[in-house]
């Protein structure tokens, strides 16, 4: 009795198209508010370092912003959080605890990416370089 039931299910599965997604040719569909890669928007960041203190995985270090970038005045110490994506557990504690809501969240989930091991590059791309920075070199 049970046998015939599962047999018919298996036969139906044979003619169905596969249930698996053919990644990377086909991308899985993720929600728009999926907790993916996040980085800080340095236009808003004040460099307080609360995210570093609160990070449960110790994935955040505060770094000095290089001299060639224009930094908003409120970030007097010129610090910014760099997230190590290899350590990050994507709990978004840094996002929710930030006093100025400076984090940009994305639903980007393909994290095995040699380009962005830390959030340094992404964060710095939110800043403009100083006008004279290139010329003085």
């Amino acid at each position: 009795m049970g046998k015939s039931k599962i047999l018919s299910l298996i036969l139906r599965n044979l003619i169905r198209k596969p249930a698996t997604i053919q990644y990377p040719r086909e991308k899985p569909w993720v929600e728009s508010d999926f907790r993916g890669r996040q980085y800080s928007d340095l236009q808003k960041c004040i460099g307080c370092g609360l995210c570093r203190i609160e990070c449960p995985a110790d994935a955040i270090v505060m770094k000095k912003i290089p001299d060639e970038y224009e930094v908003p005045k409120k970030n007097a110490r010129r610090l910014f959080p760099v997230i190590d994506y290899m350590k990050c557990v994507y709990c978004y504690r840094c996002v929710t605890v930030c006093p100025v809501r400076a984090f940009i969240t994305t639903n980007y989930f393909e994290l095995a990416d040699p380009q962005h091991i830390t959030s340094e590059e992404l964060s710095l791309s939110t800043l403009r370089k100083k006008a004279g920075g290139e010329a003085s070199k």
């Binding site: 298996i10 599965n13 999926f34 994507y90 709990c91």
Partner: peptide, 28 residues
């Protein structure tokens, strides 16, 4: 074959979890 079928249908629940919490597994 039963294992495969149950796991396929479990994906619906994983998707629901993603909708509710923002991640398939680690809800936080």
């Amino acid at each position: 074959s039963l294992f495969m079928n149950i796991m396929r249908d479990r994906e619906y629940i994983m998707k629901s979890k993603e909708i509710v919490t923002g991640n398939r597994v680690s809800a936080d």
